[in-house]
């Protein structure tokens, strides 16, 4: 974990990003105005149930949204420069060099007819131009060693590798050009626990060695607890809470975050199951006010009218919920508790 605060400048700023999908019955608001910063060297987790827009947010950051999707507004600033509206050739030179993606089911994204070495070579040559064969070989072998793979993988085809090894080849490809930011979309979700642990540890080691920033998308809260520094909780296209990982687990503030934490199956004790439904409203037509109102156990009249703004209840912990209000003296108060819970 990065304790030091000296170099806390954001490498990526996402401001009011909106990604909508067009359908005959109106736009699906997949990502509806999200804000966050990614600091240098940190790992940010992006969690939420399927359909909450977390993968779409990644595509929005990478400017890889394809029709019927479109970026409907907002800004993505990479080291201060806006990515929106850049011509495709500029974006191509940024992707992979600055912003690398480990896609969902990455192990199936390898080309089955190409050897591992040729696939990694493609990445290097496409972005840096031709290099001496010997140099490239050295570089690829070093990359494979970085992700903990033996040198003989160099000459192997994807089908000769296990799932975890393929996943690590994808990590090697992602770091081939020393990116500033890696976006890992469910990078370990299709793996067995032991292999998942190995891949996750590889990812952590690589991150530390290269000092890159990382956005980890997933829904496994256990994995998040192991890997990330800060965590952003998404619900139906909005970030409802963002906090340092320890604070979010110890003291989740948003009712949805609370529900997420409570529904983690434990290996420590048997407890009654916490049953919930999924996203219940039509994503084309979200209710006015708070996005979570239909499932919220603490819903108030205000929630049905006004969308709650983000409020920093604790340094670094920002919550979008009417339960929390700032007192005149600047202290925070939980409205429900203050009213005596009648």
């Amino acid at each position: 974990m990065t304790e030091s605060k000296e170099a806390r400048h954001p490498v990526l700023k996402v401001r009011d990003l909106k990604v909508y999908y067009e359908t005959p019955k109106g736009d699906v608001l997949a990502v509806d105005g999200i804000n966050f910063d990614l600091y240098e060297g940190e790992t940010l987790g992006l969690v939420g149930e399927s359909g909450c827009g977390k993968s779409t947010a990644a595509m929005g950051i990478l400017q890889l949204v394809v029709p019927p999707g479109r970026i409907a507004g907002g800004e993505v600033l990479l080291e201060g420069h806006s990515l929106l509206g850049l011509p495709e050739n500029m974006l191509r030179s940024i992707r992979w060099i600055k912003l690398a993606l480990i896609p969902q089911g990455a192990m199936n994204s390898l080309n089955p007819t190409m050897k591992v070495c040729d696939q990694i070579k493609d990445v290097i040559i496409a972005h840096e131009g031709k290099r001496a064969r010997k140099d490239i070989r050295q570089r690829i072998l070093k990359l494979l060693a970085t992700v903990g793979l033996p040198g003989r993988v160099y000459d192997m085809y994807p089908h000769e590798l296990s799932g975890g090894m393929k996943q690590r080849v994808c990590i090697a490809m992602a770091i081939a050009l020393n990116p500033t930011i890696i976006i890992a979309d469910e990078a370990t979700s299709a793996l067995d626990v032991v292999v998942q642990r190995i891949v996750a540890q590889t990812l952590l080691k690589v991150k530390q060695a290269l000092g890159v920033s990382m956005i980890m998308i997933g829904h496994d809260m256990g994995l998040m607890a192991q890997m990330v520094d800060r965590i952003a909780v998404m619900y139906a296209g909005k970030i409802v809470e963002i906090a340092p990982v320890a604070d979010l687990f110890a003291n989740p503030r948003h009712p949805y975050s609370q529900l997420l934490i409570e529904s983690i199956p434990s290996l420590k004790e048997r407890k009654p199951l916490k049953i919930t439904e999924g996203i219940t409203h039509d994503p084309r037509n979200p209710p006015p006010g708070c996005i979570f109102q239909l499932r919220c156990p603490f819903v108030m009249d205000k929630c049905r009218v006004v969308a709650p703004p983000g409020l920093e209840v604790k340094p670094g912990q920002i919550v979008a919920c009417h339960l929390y209000q700032e007192n005149k003296d600047g202290s925070m108060v939980n409205v429900a508790n203050a009213a005596g819970n009648t």
Partner: peptide
Amino acid sequence: QLLVDSVPVPDPNVKWKGEIFLPAE
């Protein structure tokens, strides 16, 4: 033991202990 130990603990204060390696397939 390895399997149970590898399940990620949903607590940021309890991290995986040590590193593990797998022999080749």
